[in-house]
Simulated assay, not measured.
Amino acid sequence: MVLIVLTSAIVFTVLILIVILFQMALAAGVPWGEYAMGGKFPGKYPIAMRFACLFQIAILAFIGIIVLSKSGLLLPEWSAFADIAIWFIVAYLILGTILNLITRSVWERRIWANVTIVMLITSIIIATS
């Protein structure tokens, strides 16, 4: 079971780092808007959305820290908090998976739905460990 949790934590971390890098690219003005937010902002994000990406990066980093703490790889002193917070992450990923599956953006469905499904599965494995 320890190996499964460790593998899940590594997979989750790699995927959340990819999502963070994507958000950083959007915030920097890379014209990938059609791949996020249902494709509502094709091309470069407007300034307000670019700042929203920075907020999203902070949230994603916090989520990553919680998952790593729950899996025992980082900040063991957060263990009690992570035991509860992981279930909010699972709920967040359920919602994210649903939204990525029903979005009008074909690219979002093709790319991010798969990413959130894997993140959801790995977060459930970690949460139930």
Rank of each mutant, 00 (worst) to 15 (best):
L93R: 09
F12G: 01
L15Y: 05
W112G: 02
E77F: 04
Q56E: 13
A127W: 00
I121G: 02
G38E: 08
L93W: 03
K40E: 13
G72W: 00
T13K: 10
A82C: 08
I111M: 13
N114V: 14
I4N: 06
R50N: 07
F12A: 13
T116F: 03
L95I: 13
M49Q: 14
V118P: 01
L68C: 08
I89L: 09
I121Y: 04
A28N: 12
A52C: 10
I59P: 00
I117Y: 00
L21T: 15
I125H: 02
L54S: 06
V106S: 08
A127K: 14
S123A: 15
W78I: 07
V2N: 04
D83Y: 01
I102D: 08
A25D: 09
M119Q: 15
T103L: 10
V11A: 15
S123F: 01
G72S: 09
P46T: 10
I47S: 10
I94H: 00
T103E: 05
V118Q: 05
T7V: 14
S8E: 01
A82Q: 06
I98L: 13
Q23E: 10
I84F: 03
L3N: 11
I102M: 09
K44M: 14
I63N: 12
P31S: 13
S71L: 06
A80C: 05
R109T: 11
T13Q: 11
